[in-house]
């Protein structure tokens, strides 16, 4: 694996050298740190110390057009031309990159989804190694790690005055080529420092869940009254799903003005009763209990059944953001005690 050193002073120049790409970086906006599309890296202030939000929308936008139509002329399908600008997403965390890996098979299998697949293929993911865990991180319990490079093309590790840059994939090499003037070779001490930071970070993750036999447990206690207890606090706001790196459920809606319009795909949430409501009025998941149970089932049973891997990356964002203090770590503890 190729490794480089980037002085922190050169970070904005490094990003500015990526001007042939659409660039997404973490910046502070409306009180949270989000991955935002920027034009001029030299004019912005990066936030590399907070847990970034909405990383998934760089590849799976909150709203995107599936096609446009004219009721008289018919449908105009989009083309997925390869000359479209590739994008670079900088400063995401290991859990975010793993999140994409976990939802990839959903969009790839059986009926490949060209919208997701095209964006995924033309996106380069540059990760930033977590030094300290955020408030509710538990990635090490669910197969992840703050140092994981799964899904990343490059990984940056803060080693003091500079970043240690590891090249993970061929796509990562592409970035190295255009930023070479700002990079140098690491010395032995820098390599040792990087390894120390990584090891430290893994040990600092304190919140844990016990996933041993969890999917069997969820199946066994599917009809238990515990789910109602767990859902007592939930207000069905859906914030856990919108900010979850692996929640991908969507709605499809048409927008039409004077005979012309588009079919849009937008994020949806399994926390909403309308999500499953039939036109007849029948609803298989009418209350918060069924919906909260379904979300935990999907992450810790369905995803394992379908793809062999837990659907939770342990980022803890659903806990941090929940307005009613639902805590998936505590909820799993409660389930495992039964």
């Amino acid at each position: 694996m190729n490794c480089f050193i980037l002085s922190k002073n050169n970070l904005n120049d490094f990003l500015a050298a990526l001007d042939s790409y659409e660039l997404f970086v973490p910046i502070r906006k409306n009180g949270i740190t989000v991955l935002a599309h920027i034009d001029d890296p030299l004019a912005i202030k990066l936030d590399l110390t907070s847990q970034p939000y909405l990383v998934k929308q760089t590849i799976f936008p909150q709203t995107e057009s599936l096609f446009t139509f004219d009721r008289k002329k018919g449908i105009k399908a989009p083309s997925f031309e390869t000359n479209h600008k590739s994008q670079v997403v900088f400063g995401i965390r290991s859990c975010d990159a793993r999140g994409f890996c976990i939802i990839d098979p959903v969009f790839e299998e059986d009926y490949p989804d060209p919208y997701y697949i095209h964006k995924r293929k033309s996106t380069i993911l540059i990760g930033l190694q977590c030094i300290e865990p955020f408030t509710n991180c538990f990635c090490t319990s669910v197969g992840g790690s703050p140092s994981s490079t799964e899904g990343l093309d490059l990984q940056f590790t803060d080693i003091g005055e500079s970043y240690f840059v590891e090249v993970i994939t061929q796509k990562g090499e592409e970035i190295i080529k255009v930023t070479a003037p700002f990079l140098s070779c690491p010395d032995k001490n820098q390599s040792v420092k990087k390894d120390e930071v990584k090891k430290d970070a893994e040990q600092k993750v304190k919140r844990k869940i016990d996933v041993n036999q969890l999917s069997q447990k969820i199946e066994q206690i599917f009809e238990d009254s515990v789910w109602s207890d767990l859902a007592e606090k939930c207000i069905s706001c859906g914030i856990c799903t919108f900010f979850c790196p692996t929640c991908y459920c969507f709605d499809i809606q048409d927008e039409i003005i004077r005979g012309k319009g588009k079919r849009l795909r937008t994020w949806d949430s399994c926390m909403y009763s309308e999500y499953t409501a039939h036109a007849s009025g029948y609803n298989p998941r009418p209350t918060r209990m069924e919906r909260l149970r379904n979300r935990i089932y999907h992450k810790f049973k369905q995803n394992i059944d379908r793809y062999g891997v837990s659907g939770c990356v342990g980022c803890g964002r659903c806990i941090t953001l929940c307005p009613s203090n639902e805590d998936i770590v505590e909820n799993i503890e409660t389930l495992q005690r039964l």
Binding site: F107, Y111, Y248, F250, D251, D268, Y275, T276, D305
Partner: peptide
């Protein structure tokens, strides 16, 4: 069986029964 569906191709998420 019948469920509410949007995509029809196993992606939009809502029509699951178990896994």
């Amino acid at each position: 069986l019948e469920k509410r569906m949007k995509c029809g191709i196993g992606k939009c998420g809502r029509c699951n029964v178990g896994s």
